[in-house]
């Protein structure tokens, strides 16, 4: 109950921040150079055609009027109409967000497990060969261009070995997967579509691996650093001096204390992962949120840009909120109030 109240209050506090983001994006995208109407008209369009198109999307109205209309729509869940496609933005967003979240969540989960295991392993061998190897590997991971890594994995997995599917799409169209959430793995599981599940998993393999490799590096470095601190702490030394057995020492004293700082970092890495996803989606023709937002940005599709920026900001703050709650659950000194 207390957690719920805390969440509710924090979400309410976020409203002014999000309103600021909405106002800023709305103004900036209109002030900066570029015209969304020119991109949808043919080369032979006359000035009358342009004026008609402008009126159709309400762009002939004064800016304050446009903004009030937009804000009114937001309250009722209407994100406007895409200038490029003519379809409602909310609908397009709904089918685009699932594939991206699926990619990010699976990769982040995988990276968290690997980073925790390797980071603690490395810290317990601090200064020795194994530790140095892990640290150098993390530095290489930190220096990898994710889009290039994706291409190299395609080269190896598809072109050379033939294990992975071609980097186009998320599921084999022959499997007749019906669209529910857009997250293909989830959709296949919900509809009991076995072949589609296998195909989705197959297609997820390389992009997830790409993203996981680039985000595991910063997590690993941080886990190692905080494990080193715990190992040097008085509490740990006392537990060790009392002759506690290895397993209890590891689980009860090292693991939990080490993981306390991880949620905040994972939230930060989540933001980093969203940036990487734009590039990785491009490599694998994933047709997710990243590619959609990029297209909107390039064509100055005002409603699409506004919706994507608002969504990224919303996700970012919500993820940090979740991190706070998890942190409180892990660290007995922190109380949610």
């Amino acid at each position: 109950m207390r957690v719920l109240r805390f969440l509710l209050r924090r979400l309410l506090q976020l409203l002014p921040v999000l309103l600021g983001v909405v106002v800023l994006t709305f103004l900036l995208v209109r002030v900066l150079p570029g015209d969304p109407i020119r991109t949808i008209l043919g080369p032979n369009a006359t000035a009358e055609d342009a004026a008609a198109a402008r009126a159709r999307y309400g762009l002939d109205q004064p800016v304050w009027r446009q903004f009030l209309d937009y804000l009114g729509g937001l309250v009722t869940g209407d994100l406007g109409t895409s200038i490029q496609s003519g379809a409602p933005v909310a609908g397009e967003l709904a089918v685009r967000i699932g594939p991206t979240l699926e990619l990010v969540v699976i990769a982040l989960a995988l990276a968290l497990v690997v980073a925790t295991a390797l980071g603690i392993w490395s810290a317990r061998r601090a200064g020795r060969f194994g530790d140095h190897t892990v640290r150098i590997a993390a530095l290489v991971g930190n220096s990898l261009p994710e889009f290039w890594l994706g291409l190299v994995l395609v080269l190896l997995g598809y072109s050379v070995l033939g294990w992975a599917p071609a980097p186009s799409g998320r599921v084999d169209p022959d499997t007749d997967l019906s669209l529910l959430t857009g997250a293909d793995l989830l959709d296949a599981a919900l509809t009991g579509n076995g072949p589609a599940f296998v195909s989705a998993l197959h297609h997820l393999m390389l992009p997830v691996l790409t993203l996981a490799i680039v985000i595991v590096a910063p997590l690993l470095r941080s886990v190692r650093a905080s494990a080193l601190e715990v190992l040097a702490s008085e509490a740990y030394a006392a537990a060790e001096a009392h002759g506690l057995r290895g397993r209890l020492l590891l689980r009860g004293y090292l693991l939990r204390a080490t993981l306390v700082r991880l949620p905040a970092l994972a939230a930060l890495v989540f933001g980093f992962a969203i940036g990487s996803t734009v590039l990785i989606e491009y490599v694998f023709s994933w047709q997710g949120f990243g590619q959609w937002a990029l297209r909107g940005l390039l064509y100055r599709d005002y409603p699409v840009v506004q919706a994507s920026v608002l969504l990224i900001a919303l996700f970012y703050v919500v993820v940090f909120l979740i991190a706070d709650v998890v942190h409180a659950a892990l660290d007995p000194r922190v109380r949610i109030s």
Binding site: G271, F272, I312, A313, Y316
Partner: peptide, 8 residues
């Protein structure tokens, strides 16, 4: 500035 991921 720092409310958004830097690459984005």
């Amino acid at each position: 500035f720092q409310a958004f991921p830097t690459f984005i």
